[in-house]
Design a protein around this nucleic acid. Structure first.
Lengths: 265, 265
DNA sequence: CGGAACCTTGAGGACGGTCAAAACAGGTGG
DNA sequence: CCACCTGTTTTGACCGTCCTCAAGGTTCCG
């Protein structure tokens, strides 16, 4: 029965979004599944492909979605941490409109597509939890449009680091404001619509103003309140009340102003 | 029975996304509803507000969602035409993460929130149609992130005009490549992350290269293939196979390369 | 006829991009 | 254990796209 534990992560996550009964949880953990490991940089889905027969849940590591222009410029359109479902769009669409790639080595659970669709029909509260997940992802997309469209480089990077810190924290990946930065500066550039050269200079600038400390692949947020202001970061769009009710307190001790902001805004 | 016809538009739209039975359609048209008219520029939802008790369907006119930075810069994050549901996110979230505003005078049908949630539970195929709607909107968000993050001004504007033309066409609002441009240059700027001054110059530039013709509030796409290339526009992300199966042919005659592209890509 | 949006045009400046090269990992194999 | 290789970070000099500021022109509507 050891293999069942892979979906405990999913059941756990969905339970935070909606009130699941024991039967709901049992049904979720009973879904047909297969563990899979993907090494950094390898593709899970390529734009233009038909949907796969399974839907992936991230157990550990990070992945991202990206799109490209004709002349090869790449834009990362979302980041995914442990606990995230990667493939929901492909449950309902006939073609992948973006590529999905592993950022680090990623541990996945592949969940059968049809079985997942069935559970959406038969278990309303599970469906509700999935709706919430999708809506929050959509909200994050909107914030990214704002970030890339209307903030300067300094704010964009600061915003991205704030979002990463909070999401890593509520995913239980990090414990403190100092965390391992899994993205290269190149990837950070592609997520913020900048060049890696300018990302590099901007990180130095943030460090010079005492907001962060940064070396190798580690980032430390020294001044959370300062970063929040620099990045114009208002976590309202993350809908933390639904996403991480049980983490609200610990997120608060990590980033003092966070929950307050999310309540006041 | 005249008032029932307002929801025929919704039933019609959903039928294009999924195979609805007669009972499904009857259930949709029976939803509690109220017609409402909103004048241009007035707000339907403001960021930070709790969800309303109803969900709006656009019958005619246009609306848009937008977000703002602390220093007041505005970014339009999506556009909505007749047939679009405006409020789906607020069915599942506890707070509005963006504002919704009328672009033109807008005719709406307000659909009761609880009744809509009920129908999602009781009618799987209606739910499926709504899932598709939401997933396509999410896909459009991703394309916008790419547009704003990685394309230059000329391509951004061209892309936006292409998207508008196609969506207006499949919504049945326009019949030809010449159409009334409902957005001011200011709004076009806020949708593309540019300034209105630069939008103005860029439109002139597109006109100078013979791609469009433009005067007052009218835009005419003179060279569809050229615009497609200029805007790096690949309609794959609109998932036209699901969104507008019955319009595929007419879209094709309007924009010759369109369906071909969407098939090849 | 007057006013308020909106569009248009010009001049100058800045933010971020481009190009290029060097320093610095971190991992592999000899 | 060192030499090497590839991917990443860092720095510099220069350039261009797009922004800012500002004024004049247009359109539309009351």
């Amino acid at each position: 029965m050891a293999s069942l534990s892979h979906l405990d992560a999913l059941a756990d996550r969905l339970s935070q979004r909606a009130e699941l009964t024991k039967e709901d949880i049992a049904a979720v953990t009973r879904l047909p599944q297969a563990r899979r490991v993907l090494s950094a940089n390898s593709y899970l889905v390529r734009e233009g492909e038909p949907p796969r027969t399974s839907c992936s849940l991230v157990l550990s590591g990070m992945a991202f979605r990206h799109k490209q222009t004709v002349d090869g410029a790449r834009q990362i359109v979302s980041l995914h941490l442990s606990g995230d479902l990667l493939d929901l769009p492909h449950l309902f669409l006939n073609v992948a409109d973006h590529s999905i790639q592993a950022l680090t080595d990623v541990e996945l659970v592949e969940i059968d597509r049809d079985a997942l669709q069935d559970i959406i029909v038969s278990r309303p509260m599970v469906a509700q939890a999935l709706w919430i997940d999708v809506m929050v992802e959509s909200s994050i997309h909107r914030e990214w449009v704002l970030n890339v469209g209307r903030r300067d480089a300094r704010a964009r990077i600061a915003h991205m680091l704030c979002e990463l810190a909070v999401r890593l924290r509520i995913a239980g990946v990090i414990e403190a404001a100092r965390f391992q930065m899994p993205m290269t500066q190149d990837q950070l550039a592609d997520a913020t619509g900048l060049t890696s050269v300018h990302v590099n200079r901007t990180l130095k600038l943030l460090a010079a103003s005492g907001l962060i400390e940064q070396g190798g692949r580690w980032v430390s947020i020294l001044d959370w309140e300062g970063m929040r202001r620099a990045g114009d970061f208002n976590p309202l769009y993350l809908h933390l009340d639904l996403m991480a009710p049980r983490f609200a307190k610990s997120v608060n001790t990590l980033f003092p102003a966070l929950v307050q902001v999310s309540v006041n805004a």
